[in-house]
Structures are given as C-alpha cells and as structure tokens.
Amino acid sequence: MGFLIVVTLGGSLVALVLGVAGARRVGRTALLGEVVMLAAMADVHLPAMGFVPAPFWAVLLGGCAMVTALVDRVRRPRRPQGGHLHALGMLLGAVFVVLGAAHAGDSAGHHHGAALLLPVAVAVAVHVGAVAWSVGRRRVARTESVRRIAALVGLLAMGAMAAVH
C-alpha cells in the first residue's frame, strides 16, 4: 500500500511540476485541478491526514473538472488541447476518493459490488485509451506527453489503492 501511495503522489506531483515548467504551459485551471487532485489524494490516502471529508474532495474535484473542460472548450473551440482528458481524470479521481474513503471507514461502511465497479473500470479503460491515443497519435510536445502519462500513472495508482482497500 505504501508503494501505491508513493506512486500516486509522485505521479501527481510530476504532472504538476511539468505543467508549470513545460514549454507550452498548462492553463491555470488545469494546474488548479492538479493541486486539488494532489491535496485530495494526500488527504484521503495518507494515514496521518484526513482533515477534510472525502465527499467534499469529490465535489471539489468534480467542479474543477467541469471548469477545466469548459475553459479548454471556450479557449480553443475547434482544437481543444487536452483539458477534456484532464477533466475526465479529475472525475475519476473524485470517484476514487469516495471509494477509497468508503473502504477506509470514512463513509457509511458499505461495500461496493460489481454494479458500481464495472462502470468505473470501463471509464478507466476509456481514459487510458484516450490518453494513450492523445500521446501516440497526436503531435503533442514531449513534456506534455510525459505530464499526461504521469497524471495517468498517479490516477491508476489511486484507483489501485481504492481497489485494494
């Protein structure tokens, strides 16, 4: 479990640093979403944390996802730059925050069956495919490609933590 926490926080931190330092800098809304995602991951999954309830983080991540996708669409209506992928990652992160907290005992204590986990697994598979396609098929700067992959690795590790709990 400790390894997954390190991978989750490391992937998110690398994505944040590359977003700030990249040649084509990521917009402020996406960076704000990265910061919220990092804070939510740390607060929910680190044993010494837990200052803010998981539903608050989930709502905040959902709001950041919607704003990120909207800003990306408004700024570049014909050629979005990947904000929609980042928004999908934040929405999946919100789901993982709630599932991780539910398994850790912060929620009502009920277990989620295949009826919930199957759609989440499908959404994760679609997200992985979309990120792989955007990195492999489009002309994306190397720094941006690494940032997207780092964010994906952090998100997948967060999902693994939610599944392992």
Rank of each mutant, 00 (worst) to 15 (best):
M41C: 08
Q81W: 07
V71L: 04
G63M: 09
L31R: 15
G89A: 15
V97N: 01
R79F: 08
A42L: 07
V74W: 08
A21Q: 11
G19L: 05
R78A: 14
H84D: 15
G27V: 01
L13R: 01
V44R: 04
G19T: 11
P77S: 10
V20M: 11
V35D: 02
F56P: 02
L70A: 15
L9M: 11
L60G: 01
A23C: 00
L61P: 05
M66C: 14
P53R: 13
L18N: 08
L70E: 05
G62H: 05
L91C: 14
E34P: 00
L88F: 12
A21L: 15
A21D: 07
V52F: 04
G82F: 07
P47W: 01
R78K: 13
G89F: 08
L70H: 09
R73D: 09
D72P: 02
A65C: 09
V71G: 00
L32M: 13
V14H: 04
R78G: 13
P80T: 12
V17M: 14
R76I: 00
D43M: 04
A48G: 06
G10K: 13
L32R: 00
A54T: 06
F96N: 10
G27N: 15
A30S: 12
V17P: 03
L46E: 06
A65D: 10
F96W: 14
M90P: 03
F56H: 03
G50S: 03
R79C: 08
V95D: 02
L16D: 10
L38D: 02
F56I: 15
A30R: 12
H86P: 00
A40R: 01
L46R: 02
V52N: 00
P55G: 05
D43L: 01
V36P: 02
G62Y: 07
F51G: 14
G10D: 05
S12T: 10
Q81A: 15
V67Y: 09
G89K: 03
G19H: 11
V26L: 14
S12R: 13
G62V: 05
V44I: 12
R73N: 06
V67F: 06
P53W: 03
A58V: 05
L92I: 14
A87Q: 07
G93P: 04
G33M: 06
L31I: 11
A21H: 00
L46S: 05
M66E: 12
V71M: 09
R75Y: 00
A65F: 01
A87H: 09
A40G: 11
R79G: 01
G22I: 06
V26R: 15
A87N: 09
V98W: 06
V98R: 04
L92G: 02
A23I: 05
V17K: 10
G50Q: 01
A48C: 02
L13T: 15
V74M: 11
A58S: 15
A58Q: 07
G19K: 06
A42N: 03
G82A: 12
V44S: 03
L13P: 03
L31K: 04
L88N: 04
G50A: 04
L92C: 09
T29F: 14
M37P: 00
F51V: 10
M49L: 08
R79W: 10
L70K: 12
V95K: 00
G82V: 11
F51I: 03
D43G: 00
A69Y: 01
G63H: 07
V20H: 14
T29E: 13
